[in-house]
């Protein structure tokens, strides 16, 4: 394990920043490095933080209006013309509304268009269920050729943006609206398709994607004091999944938990369930939205209500451990 975590990670005053802010910085930096990069937005330029790029490269920014189907299909045409288009809207609208266009003109057509879905998850808060996108991970990861990434914090979002700018593939980047704790550091590693062990343990593997990794770190800290030594693995890339890292950890611990601010059905939890059932059948607890929609409320209130906070996860994991036998090879 060589992942350097933010030393003030467990402090109450841990630095917080919206993940989308990291995307904004990353896109501007990617635009400086590569003049083929263009940015398209569906009337949410400040909100999705494409504004940094727009200010720096107005001639490479295209305002699309509130038209998400056209947003991604025009991007497909721009990619045919040799450009690297980044498209942004709220995840509920893109890829929520335009899935078929993404399927046909971007993934089947294999064009390196980047779909940026901001404001994903219940932490969108007061806007309510219509705007709290929970199905995007499932929608995007079933598409052949598509890369799916949910960065854990703003620093990682910046790195992920730079990485997808140069990967030559259709890619989906999932962003959150609210400020969230920054658990990584500028020199922490990020590579598409890699998972990272953030904390070692031997009793259970906690696998997190997106902002939920922070909640798992908090949960692991609490579990430690109750005598449960949890290993925390951060999985920012949901597709392609880092199967080797996940299997190696689960092989060691014999129990697994996934956490995501999304539907567990078909989402990250679904992806890990598929991997384990085919390779290493293991008792699995999936933390996330359990086949239901969100609702209006304060983001922290909603996170607690749906038991997505570190305290709730620690309790649920403790119960899971107490009544679940550890997997042993050959049992």
């Amino acid at each position: 394990m060589n992942y350097s975590l933010n030393p003030s990670l467990y402090d109450d005053e841990v630095e917080q920043e919206p993940i989308r802010a990291g995307f904004g910085r990353g896109l501007k930096a990617a635009g400086e490095a590569n003049d083929k990069i263009v940015a398209l937005c569906a009337d949410l330029t400040d909100s999705t933080k494409m504004s940094d790029f727009k200010a720096a490269f107005p001639e490479r920014f295209i305002e699309m209006g509130i038209a998400e189907q056209n947003l991604v299909t025009v991007a497909s045409g721009l990619a045919r013309a040799g450009k690297v288009p980044f498209t942004s809207s709220y995840a509920a609208f893109s890829p929520g509304r335009n899935w078929e266009q993404i399927r046909t003109t971007i993934t089947l057509n294999d064009q390196p268009v980047k779909i940026i879905g901001s404001h994903a998850g219940v932490s969108v808060g007061p806007d309510g269920a219509t705007h709290q996108m929970l199905e995007d991970i499932a929608l995007m990861r079933v598409l052949p050729n598509m890369v799916v990434i949910a960065p854990g914090d703003s620093i990682e979002a910046e790195k992920a943006t730079r990485a997808v700018a140069e990967n030559g593939k259709p890619s989906y980047l999932r962003l959150a609206r609210e400020k969230t704790p920054v658990f990584s550091k500028v020199d922490s590693p990020f590579e598409i398709g890699k998972a990272y062990v953030l904390r070692e343990g031997h009793d259970i593997t906690l696998l997190g994607t997106g902002t939920m990794t922070y909640q798992l770190l908090v949960a692991a800290q609490q579990l430690e004091s109750r005598g449960i030594h949890a290993e925390v693995v951060h999985v920012p890339t949901i597709k392609p999944l880092d199967e080797a890292t996940i299997l190696a950890s689960v092989q060691k611990t014999g129990r697994a938990v996934t956490a995501e601010e999304a539907q567990i059905n078909g989402g990250f939890g679904g992806a890990v369930a598929e991997l384990l059932s085919e390779n290493l059948p293991t008792p699995l607890l999936r933390v996330g939205m359990r086949d239901r929609f969100g609702e209006s409320g304060d983001p922290d209130e909603l996170i607690r209500h749906f038991r997505l906070d570190g305290d709730s996860i620690a309790e649920d994991v403790k119960e899971f451990v107490s009544k679940t036998p550890r997997y042993h090879q050959g049992f």
Partner: peptide
């Protein structure tokens, strides 16, 4: 072939994206 199509309505957008590139970027 310049594009993939079948589900209707998206070929015009793909062409418009290319035309935008020719006119404004290239």
């Amino acid at each position: 072939l310049e594009n993939t199509s079948g589900p209707l309505g998206s070929g015009l957008s793909q062409a418009a994206g290319y035309a935008y590139s020719l006119q404004y970027l290239d």
